[in-house]
Computed example of a mutant assay.
Amino acid sequence: MKIIDAHMHFWDLEQNYLPWLCDPRPLENFRYGDYSALRRNYMPEDYRKDAEGFDVVGGVFVETEWDPSDPLGEISWVKGVAMRHGLPSVAVGQAFLDRVDAPGILAAYGADPFVKGIRHKPRAAPRPDAVEAGARGSMGDPVWRQGYRHLGRNGLSFDLQTPWWHLGEARALADDFGDTVIILNHTGLPADRSPEGISAWRSALRLLAGAPNVRIKISGIGIPGQDWLVEANREVVLTAIEIFGTGRAMFASNFPVDSLVARYRDIFNGFDVITSDLTGDERDDLFWRTASRTYGVAV
């Protein structure tokens, strides 16, 4: 099974400034807990070692929370990486949609065929009952939405990383800006695996999937302190596929971040086992074809 990895990261901490990895004080409440193991360079040669034995034919680089004062610098750097190493195939850049420089940044990305979209993590509430409609920096913030408007004008997609309790706002965004494709990152972050948590996540996913311009990355579903097991993740994977269909779903490693909770082979062998009853065409969608279509990765 060939793979287009729909979500990968590279960084060189000796050359570049990524605050969350370079600053002495770590982020609070990082979803996988202690991430000190990530404070090292991670380049395509490291990725290929992790992915040894798998036929990775392309990959989508997603912004790494690079120095926020220089979003375009990350794209310049990663294009050089791609030229030297053959990975990544395309990139999703950093932008801050509620900043005054957003229109110029997005115009620059739109003029660069290597850049297919952007990611800006909107402000999120810590739990479902704390959601505040229209909060500053959220998907409902008029200033944030004004910046979002420039994505469609520049032919860019939007990688959305947010917990499932904000997917109602995401649906409104998808409806209001139908010319912009939204790619939900990390399966909507179903961290609560209780029956109640899974039920609420499933309902939110169904709401979002009702918009035809939304895709989903099945990734980032590791559980801190536990091995990545088929038994633990089968329901999440199959639910996402059932709701979105294989034509709008894609698999991704989220490496090296998910190396905190799993080996590369655990993740992709797990995806293989979980989808073993699907047709060859459906599996092609999930492992490479949806990513190819969504991000314009030639195979």
Rank of each mutant, 00 (worst) to 15 (best):
E14R: 15
F287D: 03
Y148T: 01
T239P: 02
A37Y: 12
W144L: 06
N233P: 07
E196D: 12
S157R: 13
G247Q: 14
G296T: 04
P256S: 08
Q226R: 15
A209E: 11
E52Y: 03
I198W: 03
V214K: 06
D50T: 08
G80I: 04
F287G: 00
A170V: 09
W77K: 04
H150V: 03
V299T: 02
P19R: 09
I105C: 10
P224Q: 02
M1D: 05
A51K: 10
L156D: 11
V90D: 01
G225L: 07
D67C: 07
P44E: 06
L207N: 13
L189W: 15
A172M: 15
D12R: 14
I267K: 02
P128E: 11
G104I: 00
V57R: 12
L189F: 15
V131R: 12
P224T: 04
D285A: 04
I118H: 02
T294K: 01
S292A: 13
I105H: 11
L173D: 04
Q161C: 08
Y109N: 04
V62M: 07
G59F: 09
R99Y: 11
L106V: 04
V257Q: 08
L18T: 12
I183D: 09
F287Y: 14
N185Q: 09
A102F: 04
A6F: 13
G58L: 02
T246A: 00
P128Y: 14
K116S: 05
V57H: 01
L18G: 02
H150E: 14
L278N: 04
I267E: 07
V273E: 07
I198G: 02
R99L: 01
A298Y: 11
I243V: 11
I4L: 05
H9Y: 12
G197L: 09
A133D: 12
V261K: 07
A291L: 02
W66D: 07
A107K: 15
G73S: 06
V131P: 09
D179P: 05
V131I: 13
G104A: 14
